[in-house]
Design a protein around this nucleic acid. Structure first.
Lengths: 163, 163
DNA sequence: TGATTTACTTAGTGACACTAATCAATACGG
DNA sequence: CCGTATTGATTAGTGTCACTAAGTAAATCA
């Protein structure tokens, strides 16, 4: 078992725990993980077109339509006609949507943050460096993987175009 | 933006790229990511009961039934009656299933391994240490998160109970 | 033996993902 | 300016994956 295998196993453990655990936690907020992700993106960008969101989430436009249908039915988002291009619609988050995102903080936070923050300073630094290295190796994509972080940043965090 | 946020962003980038990228890659093998995961577990354990697999994947028994139905319909697995308990069934992988797992190596491997292996030795060590730290923080579950690694290890890797 | 538990399946539902086709609005070329 | 092509969003239809509730068969226990 070499280091490559070790690192892969660790990554998979991370994936697995967040995925499965994320389902339970999101459901406690009455929303699915995917729905929360959409809300986060909408909240972060202020007003995005369906196409924007679908590209950001790597999902086809029809999928986004149905996701937005569900979120709109729950009163979490609204679709407004665009002024500049009447084919487009601007998706905006409602008060209820913003509240929901706040109530359903990211699954990662729940079990991770407190532990991370209790680490030594040098450990935190090492972990950040390593994670960013790994992310860079994996995330070699063209698109702007603007990090949807946590709901605390969403209210004022409009300019989240992490390039 | 403190270190906690940085680490969360990095983790999310990892999750996102592997999730979305994983879909495409798994489909190239004619199987979905979930199906591959089942096959990996079955291959790794030799013969597992549906219950075993469902618990391992954190999925309800009916879900596992339908997953196994699909895999059986494709000839990837077989359900054999258990000798010790006739309520149980032993799920075993077929030749075709093993081939499929081989053809569809983990998405992680594809973009990650070559880059990782080109790193300096000290960098590899640092990354492994950091990833395992993060995994331990996230993966605070009761069950044995036996790492399904890559298909190359499956043929002989029976004893993969990483506790 | 009869009641309970356990393992798996069936039935029914919902979320999420896709492709193909549709409709409205914009952009382009002559 | 007008017709065609392109673009943005939706509708229609399908398949996978997830769940709960209920059913069947076998094992266990009182």
């Amino acid at each position: 078992m070499d280091r490559t295998d070790q690192s892969l196993i660790a990554i998979r453990r991370i994936l697995r725990s967040t995925q499965t655990y994320g389902r339970e936690l999101a459901r406690a907020a009455g929303l699915t993980p995917v729905q929360i992700r959409v809300l986060q993106i909408v909240a972060e960008t202020g007003a995005a077109t369906p196409k924007d969101i679908s590209q950001r989430m790597r999902v086809s436009p029809p999928t986004m339509t149905s996701l937005l249908d569900r979120l709109a039915a729950k009163g979490m988002v609204e679709r407004q006609k665009s002024e500049v291009d009447r084919r487009q619609k601007n998706v905006v988050i409602t008060r209820a949507g913003r509240d929901a995102v706040h109530r359903a903080p990211d699954p990662l936070q729940q079990r991770y943050v407190s532990q991370f923050e209790s680490l030594q300073d040098w450990e935190q630094a090492m972990i950040v460096a390593a994670l960013e290295r790994v992310a860079a190796m994996l995330d070699a994509t063209d698109f702007d993987a603007a990090p949807v972080l946590d709901s605390n940043l969403l209210d004022d965090g409009e300019g989240g175009t992490a390039g």
